[in-house]
Computed example of a mutant assay.
Amino acid sequence: MVFHPVNFLDYTQLFVNGSWVTIWTSTVAFALSLVLGALVALMRLSPLSVIRAVGAVYVEVLRNTPVLVQIFIVYFGLGSIGIRLSALLAGVIALAINAGAYLAEVIRAGLQSVPAGQLEAARSLGLSSTHTFFSVVLPQAFRTVFPPIINQYIDMILASSLLSTIAVNELTSVARIVNGITYETLAIFAFAMLFYLVLTNVVAFAAHVFARRVFKPQVETKFRFRIRRSQKLRVGGDPA
């Protein structure tokens, strides 16, 4: 087989467009997952056992089933019962629901990491529950959960490649299209991989700069072109 070099300049705009779809999809899904994760985390900390149980079931089901299957359920499954969503909307919803389960455990662990003594001190000073949460709990929890939240966003960018299976024109889907034109599989997908590498490392670097400027003393992100996965909080599913 003769290798014919690909003129990437002919397809660069397609890859750039695909990258923008990847960024938009990942960012919107991530924002939704943060809201969902925060709500589920509060459910997991609820004094009511029924609410804790609902939160626990959500987390366990979503974290222990493949995200690709979840994408198919939202896109094809809902469509089969008359709820028809565009591929882009279905992909965003599926990614958000999946990531929400992981972020729920991260946020829950962050909230629980605040020493109980500080809450008691805040109450002794006459602070309301709302004031205590936003002035005492939230700043400390945010500092704790920041590295794993950024890692989850990076994972979201990579997981968005699965949306190519439902014809969302993100980066991997563009690579498949160009590969169908050129038949230079190795070169095309290596080029796509380079785009993913750039995207994830830009996010990691921006997060590192943000952490250095905002957190005093600094959060140890151990930046080395990527916030290490080892920085993720080790959280387990407490019984409901």
Rank of each mutant, 00 (worst) to 15 (best):
L78K: 06
G79D: 05
S80N: 11
G82T: 10
L85H: 04
A87I: 06
L88D: 13
A90K: 06
A90E: 08
G91H: 02
V92C: 10
I93S: 12
A94N: 03
L95R: 02
I97M: 14
G100P: 04
G100D: 00
A101Y: 09
Y102K: 00
A104M: 04
A104V: 03
A104F: 14
E105Y: 07
E105S: 09
E105W: 10
V106W: 07
V106K: 04
I107Y: 12
L111Y: 11
L111N: 00
S113F: 08
A116I: 10
G117E: 07
G117F: 00
G117W: 01
Q118G: 03
Q118W: 07
L119G: 14
L119K: 12
A121Q: 00
A121E: 08
A122P: 11
S124F: 10
L125T: 12
G126N: 02
L127P: 07
T130P: 04
F133V: 09
F133T: 02
F134K: 05
F134V: 10
V137S: 00
V137R: 06
V137G: 03
L138T: 04
P139V: 03
Q140H: 02
A141H: 05
A141F: 01
F142V: 13
T144V: 15
P147Q: 07
P147V: 10
P147W: 06
I149L: 14
I150E: 01
N151F: 05
I154W: 07
M156L: 12
I157K: 04
A159R: 09
S160I: 05
S160T: 15
L163V: 01
S164K: 09
S164C: 12
I166G: 06
I166R: 05
I166N: 09
V168R: 06
N169G: 15
N169R: 07
T172L: 14
V174L: 00
I177D: 10
N179H: 05
G180N: 11
G180R: 05
G180I: 02
